[in-house]
Simulated assay, not measured.
Amino acid sequence: MTRTLREVPKYVYLTLVALVSVAPLYFMAVSATNSTQDVLASRMWPGSHLLENWQTLTSQQDVGAAMYHSTVNAVLTTVLALVVSSIAGYGFEVYHSPNKDRLMWVLMLAMMIPFAATMIPLFQLFADFGMVNSSFAVVLPVIATPLLILMFRQSARSFPHEIIEAARMDGLREFSIFWRMFVPTMRPTYAAAAVITFMAAWNNFLWPKVILVKSTVQTMPMLISNFSAGYVIDYGALMLAVLIASLPTIVIFFVLQRSFVAGFTGVVK
């Protein structure tokens, strides 16, 4: 009984933190069903304006096209980033050398350079190749991030090198060792990296805003920005757009939640 009483403050604190964390999501979902006046009045219970907000949103913005382009960009970014970063992290650790350590330090220092400093040269580069308004122009600059490479390198350190040597003696090729032995073992790390990359790619705004000039290829963050740029803002429809844009990342996180935590635990170890 004494131990249970000691646990009460902890659970009360965790409950309060959970409520504070969920409150913005609840307000967003409720506001999507309310009118602009109700949203500005901070009404905290559902209304009856969901269909009206949907009609207002779809009459002014092409939600389907924005969702499609956001999905394509996020999925391409996630898949390519996992492939490139996992191979790089595996190579940094398994084929270790002092020169690769120096290169890793260069990659880590590159994280300190703000993206705004490289945005104009990147735009000029993709414009010269005729890739403006294409998904590859959005995806290519972010498929090899130092953070993901470091994550996979740290995970590769826990991979037994004796197994690699035994596989080589049995005649297994290097790519087969990576694909058939390393990849299945590092599933939690892949899940954690997938969640981070997908959420970052889905919410990416600045670079798509620069490289996607045509409104027909806009993403959901761009749609929300354009919808809220008028003189008169329909906050009910705006909240509905934010809710729609948030659903994919929420679903991805909850589906991969356990693997996400396990992946970061493995990285720390």
Rank of each mutant, 00 (worst) to 15 (best):
A166V: 07
H161D: 11
L82N: 02
S42R: 11
L147H: 12
L19D: 03
E7L: 15
L150M: 12
L238T: 00
V213G: 08
M28P: 01
R168M: 13
S85I: 01
V106S: 10
A201W: 03
S135D: 04
A23T: 04
V195G: 06
T265G: 14
V22N: 05
S225V: 02
G89A: 08
L148A: 14
D128T: 04
G91P: 03
A194M: 08
P248I: 05
G64E: 04
F227Y: 13
N34A: 00
L140S: 06
A74K: 10
P98M: 14
N73E: 04
A116Y: 08
P146T: 06
I244M: 11
E7D: 12
P141W: 06
G236Y: 03
E52M: 07
V84G: 07
N34I: 00
V139H: 08
A241N: 03
I211V: 15
I113W: 02
W207E: 03
S228Q: 13
M111I: 09
T15C: 15
L247T: 07
H49F: 03
A156S: 15
T185D: 09
F254T: 09
T71R: 10
E162P: 09
V255I: 15
M186R: 00
V20L: 15
S42W: 07
G230P: 00
I250T: 10
A41W: 08
A192W: 01
V261Q: 11
T185K: 11
A23F: 12
V75A: 09
F178E: 00
H96E: 12
I224E: 04
A229R: 15
T249W: 09
T4R: 15
M239P: 01
F253G: 11
S31E: 03
T145Y: 05
F159H: 10
V232Y: 06
G89E: 03
N204S: 13
S21V: 07
Q154L: 15
I224V: 13
Y190E: 01
P184Y: 00
F227E: 00
F205C: 01
G91Q: 10
D170M: 08
L57T: 00
V138N: 08
L16K: 07
P188A: 08
D234V: 05
K10N: 08
A110L: 12
S228M: 14
E52P: 02
V217L: 10
L223D: 02
M220L: 14
F253L: 14
A88H: 06
A191V: 04
N99A: 15
V94H: 07
G230F: 04
L238W: 01
I143D: 05
A66F: 01
V79N: 09
F198P: 06
G47I: 00
M44P: 03
G89M: 09
G89P: 10
Y13A: 15
A81V: 02
L206C: 00
V261N: 07
Y90I: 09
V261T: 06
A29I: 09
V8K: 12
S35K: 02
P114Q: 09
A241Q: 02
S31Y: 05
